[in-house]
Design a protein around this nucleic acid. Structure first.
Length: 113
DNA sequence: AGCCTGACCTAGG
DNA sequence: TCCTAGGCCAGGC
């Protein structure tokens, strides 16, 4: 498989696309899954670029390690992120996911293939 | 080519 | 417990 310079973003998208409906994950977990622990900022950056991607990337299922909707302001509406989560039976209170630890989903770490 | 920014995380005071 | 600083690495100017 060829790896383009923008492969970093595509790896992030692949992880996010694998998040089950009704579950959420964190930027750090994604960064760890792509073999770049500590590069959690890049994950958020990839999310910002994801909206220009033709693929539907459920960025609303990605939150920070506190379970807070830090990226909600980047969605079209002011409350879009929360509404999307509510549509998946995820409750958000005060910009924070309720029972975050219960619905937290950790992606599998990709091999160094 | 160099500097600044960023949807984060961890550690130290 | 709150606040500050540093690190991470890719993109934009």
């Amino acid at each position: 498989m060829m790896k383009n310079s923008s492969d970093f973003f595509e790896r992030v998208y692949e992880i996010v696309l694998n998040i089950p409906i009704g579950r959420v994950t964190t930027y750090g977990a994604i960064a760890n899954a792509i073999g770049a622990p500590g590069a959690s900022r890049m994950v958020g950056w990839a999310m910002n670029a994801s909206h220009k991607s033709n693929l539907y990337v459920p960025a609303h299922r990605v939150v920070n390690r506190n379970g807070m909707l830090t990226g909600k302001h980047h969605f079209p509406g002011q409350n879009t992120m929360e509404e999307l989560l509510n549509a998946e039976n995820i409750t958000v209170h005060n910009n924070k996911i309720v029972d975050f630890e219960k619905i937290l989903w950790i992606p599998d770490v990709y091999d160094t293939n």
